[in-house]
């Protein structure tokens, strides 16, 4: 039984800030169900991050041409007004970015940043309620001593901890969709696995749909049930992750799989 959360129809994104228009996404269509984890893989420049930004409503529209439709729970959001988008952002759609080092505001305390979405979308909550939720959320991303972390500044935390904080602040309003845009790229391999496990746990416990974007096939395979392979702004292959790994149909996918170091392929977890 399908329970559709997100549907993209024929998405095209073209940059116009240079002399020659540059097409970064062309004719992309995809569907994401509730509770599903979908992976988008591709090398840098394949348009996967642009797709994520389009869904999250974070494209700077004035220097690009966008066409197509994005439906979130049946509502078109690609061409929606800014205020309509703001209602979804941080509340129904959360996003984690690639750079945990720079994606947090350096002069604000962790607690303040985790609570920010609550202040915007749940203004009726009292300060104590917000605090309790933030602590609970920090706990759920498996940070030790959340009360201590709450009072720290980003530069006092390690990269892995910051990415957990980012995850917490994206999850605090219990979004239905979590977009993770290369959340592990800047981190050590061991920390990468921890973050992947964390996302799995959040998906299980809260039934949040996750759009996991990465260039790292082995991570995507561990996390996602279904995979979308992108190349040059187009979807070249789509299907069950096990299927794609064992019987890749496209030459490009084979190349990607071939690029995974042998050791990692043997590693089971």
């Amino acid at each position: 039984m399908e329970d559709l959360l997100l549907e993209i129809k024929d998405l095209n994104i073209e940059f116009h800030d240079h002399d020659a228009p540059e097409r970064v996404v062309s004719g992309l269509s995809m569907r994401l169900n509730r509770g599903e984890i979908l992976g988008i893989v591709g090398e840098s420049g394949s348009g996967k991050s642009m797709t994520a930004m389009a869904i999250a409503g974070l494209l700077r529209r004035h220097d690009m041409k966008i066409s197509g439709e994005i439906y979130f729970e049946g509502t078109e959001i690609l061409h929606a007004g800014r205020s309509e988008l703001r209602r979804l952002q941080g509340d129904d759609i959360g996003i984690i970015f690639q750079e945990p080092m720079t994606s947090l505001n350096p002069v604000k305390k962790i607690g303040w940043q985790v609570e920010e979405s609550l202040r915007i979308h749940r203004p009726q909550l009292s300060r104590e309620q917000r605090y309790a939720l933030a602590i609970e959320c920090l706990k759920s991303v498996e940070l030790d001593e959340p009360e201590v972390i709450y009072k720290k500044y980003p530069h006092e935390l390690s990269g892995g901890m910051r990415q957990r904080v980012m995850t917490a602040s994206a999850m605090i309003c219990d979004p239905r969709l979590l977009i993770a845009d290369e959340p592990t790229t800047a981190l050590d391999v061991t920390i990468q696995l921890q973050i992947v496990k964390l996302l799995q746990k959040l998906n299980r416990e809260k039934n949040t749909s996750i759009l996991f974007i990465s260039h790292d096939l082995s991570l995507v395979r561990k996390l996602c049930g279904r995979i979308l392979v992108m190349h040059d702004g187009r979807v070249v292959e789509e299907g069950d992750s096990h299927e794609i790994f064992t019987h890749p149909r496209q030459a490009y996918t084979k190349e990607l799989i071939g690029a995974i170091p042998r050791m990692e392929k043997l590693q089971q977890f």
Binding site: L58, R82, R87, Q89, F97, S103, N105, P106, E116, S117
Partner: peptide, 14 residues
């Protein structure tokens, strides 16, 4: 132009 500004927008700030 910094990354944390994008994060701030993603939380629904105007």
């Amino acid at each position: 132009a910094k990354d944390y500004v994008r994060t701030a927008y993603s939380k629904g700030n105007d």
